[in-house]
Design a protein around this nucleic acid. Structure first.
Lengths: 212, 212
DNA sequence: AGCTAATAACTGACTGGTCAGTTATTAGCT
DNA sequence: AGCTAATAACTGACCAGTCAGTTATTAGCT
């Protein structure tokens, strides 16, 4: 009787991340309710029962997936906030490039879409996403705007609104990519979009005296 | 034996719209999968079986709800496109007010969020929404931008990107309202947001010579 | 080193509840 | 009386979560 390859391997340490990777993919494709635990398990190369060795419930897996994406992006936000306090145009151009980069290389847009879609059924998830990530990013930008206004670099106006104006096109382009590109819509080039956007915005934000 | 109020009324003509109204509310609250046909029926003042006199399946109801919102908004888009071809600033300010109005008084944002959330499971819905509404609105704005560029009123640059820049903050503010305000976030005043946004955008879009 | 007992990761068949969709029947209209 | 909108009880499929049993791995002993 040849033993053959073993039916499974014991890899306690790696399982959780593998499961969360598979779960991210399935949740992103189907949404929370339509996602099947059997499929998550299959993609993770594991039985359904094994999921329950590491997570309590389906919701628990969902929370973990969403939470996992926050931490690395918080690093980006912190870096943004710590960016050198030079002239506003330099700062904002730098931030735009960094944000576009993150948007293109992380599962951020897929998770953002999930949070939007499931916010009603998981209010506490929307709260975490808002408190730990979105509002902090928004405040970081608002703070930079306020400082630049104090220096007389840019026009008066609600800083929070300016911040929203700044990031909105990127967010919409991300949603566009997730929603309409799969059905044949023309995608937006995020980097090109952001550079055109920043220049447009700047020449509206900059007061006449400081314009180069 | 008093007859009392009749158990039900036969109102074949009114039922479909009543059902769709109830369905819109439930779908908007719960999303497609978590919405219960029993609840839709209850809110429509009807039994579950009655739903099947007017619609084939749950998906069919969902499609009808989404489709119903398109028509009235197409009117708005058409009106936008037909707006007088005067100076670009006048046009864009008018359109901004009109759009903010629609966003505040119609179930547009709720349905938009539904379409985003369920796009993966209903690609043909994303397609209808895009082809019949979103892309037409975007093209209407792009057309106005292109015309203004031809007249030398505004700077060169990708018109479709300008169009996206124009509507993005409104869309994001709508999603913000649907997602984060229920968990305690500060809402954005759509009208104020749009007026600040348009002015910021204009003074970046307008070339120096035509600036007032 | 080889053998065995103990441990813990993992499986997969099962269940209890839920819910979309069906159907036999009743109530209201003309 | 005849017709049909509408009901309410029913069914069958589906799926999150469970658990008794199986298999890989490790520890302990000689």
């Amino acid at each position: 009787m040849e033993p053959g390859p073993p039916k499974f391997r014991r890899r306690k340490a790696d399982r959780p991340t593998e499961i969360l990777g598979a779960a991210l993919a399935v949740f992103a494709e189907k949404g929370f309710a339509a996602a099947r635990l059997d499929e998550i398990a299959r993609r993770a190369g594991v039985s359904k029962g094994a999921l329950y060795l590491y997570f309590e419930t389906k919701e628990d897996i969902f929370r973990a997936v969403v939470g996992q994406v926050i931490a690395p992006n918080m690093v980006a936000v912190k870096a943004m906030a710590a960016a050198h306090p030079g002239p506003f145009p330099d700062l904002i151009r730098r931030v735009a490039v960094a944000i576009a980069q993150v948007a293109q290389t992380s599962p951020l847009s897929a998770v953002a879409k999930m949070v939007l879609g499931e916010a009603r059924n998981f209010p506490e998830l929307a709260r975490v996403w808002h408190d730990d990530l979105v509002s902090q990013a928004l405040e970081a930008i608002s703070g930079a705007v306020k400082a630049a206004q104090a220096r007389g670099e840019i026009k008066p106006g609600d800083p929070r609104t300016f911040a929203l104006q700044f990031i909105s096109p990127l967010l919409v382009a991300m949603m566009w990519r997730e929603t309409f590109v799969p059905v044949g819509a023309e995608p937006f080039d995020l980097s090109r979009l952001m550079s055109q956007h920043v220049e447009t915005l700047l020449h509206g934000l900059l007061v006449a005296e400081t314009r180069s």
